[in-house]
Amino acid sequence: MPDNITVSPAPHISEPVWTHRVMIDVLIGLVPAMAAAGYYFRLYALILICTCVISSVVTEWLCNLICKKPNSLGDFSAVVTGVILALSLPPGLPIWAAVIGSVFSIAIGKMVFGGLGSNIFNPAMVGRAFLTASFGMMMTTWTVPATIDSTMPRIAPENMLHARTQATPLGWSKIAIKDRNGAKIFNDEQFEATLIGEVGGCLGETSAIALLIGGLYLLIRRTINFHIPLAVLLSAFVFGSIAYLIDPDAYMQPVFHLTSGGMLLCAFFIATDPVTAPLTRRGMWIFGAGVGTITMLIRIVGAYPEGVMFSVLLMNAVTPLIDRLCKRVPAGGKPGV
């Protein structure tokens, strides 16, 4: 039977919600972040994004070929994975490392489980985790945005020894916790810098405004529900506030935590991945709150400056449990009880 003939009882309202529509929407939502990446990190950023996309697509095509499965490139999910992976990479990463990350994302993160819809973990984050574990040094070497002079003090607090290698707001935050001079480092000027993106960090995470625009687009288009982003941001804010209220000298203001690092990218684009997030509304709240809280725990207490990747992977792992916990009861009570 051809696809365009649908037999169903009235009312006949139909909406073309297919996987590739959703994925294209996500891609459109990511355009501002990609533009910001291109603006701040210049040509190399665009080369990295293209590399990740191309190698993701090629890997998916090859995996399908080897497993003798129908071609699944049409759903654009490989492109989205590639873009998200690229946006979460440091801007100075060598091309070959980006290729390894993309291949790993698609092959181990997705295709091994049986392709889109069967994967447990967010493929892009799987690839990034592998890169972090393998090339720890490269994955934490940050370059300064091209728009500012790298010798300007704005990018790095005076007490920083190696501004070039640790110049992310979260890197300062870790040092501030140790030296207890958070209040000195984080002022309005810094906050402004994290909003527009004139700070060090991964390709797509520096500019909070670009990410917010993209996120709003997705919310308006109803590609994503507001539950997960809100839960992530709210729980992170609450956790950050508690830390800040306990010791304002050591911990930075909670708003900073939202605008810096991968928090917004995660809240709108990574945690909302329909495959690896829970299905029910209650589940989404739990999932989002878990992501936000674990991220903040790692940022404030843990050894790493950023915790978005690990928190998403950890919560992905418990997603099936959350889904089981939040089963919806059919109208009229449980069947068979």
């Binding site: 490392a97 390894i100 181990i108 091994v112 592998f130 574990a133 393998s134 090339f135 720890g136």
Partner: peptide, 17 residues
């Protein structure tokens, strides 16, 4: 450039798999 992850437990699981 060596892939440090392969010498960690994760490398063992992935390679075995």
């Amino acid at each position: 450039v060596p892939w440090a992850a392969m010498s960690m437990p994760v490398g063992a699981f992935i390679t075995l798999g």
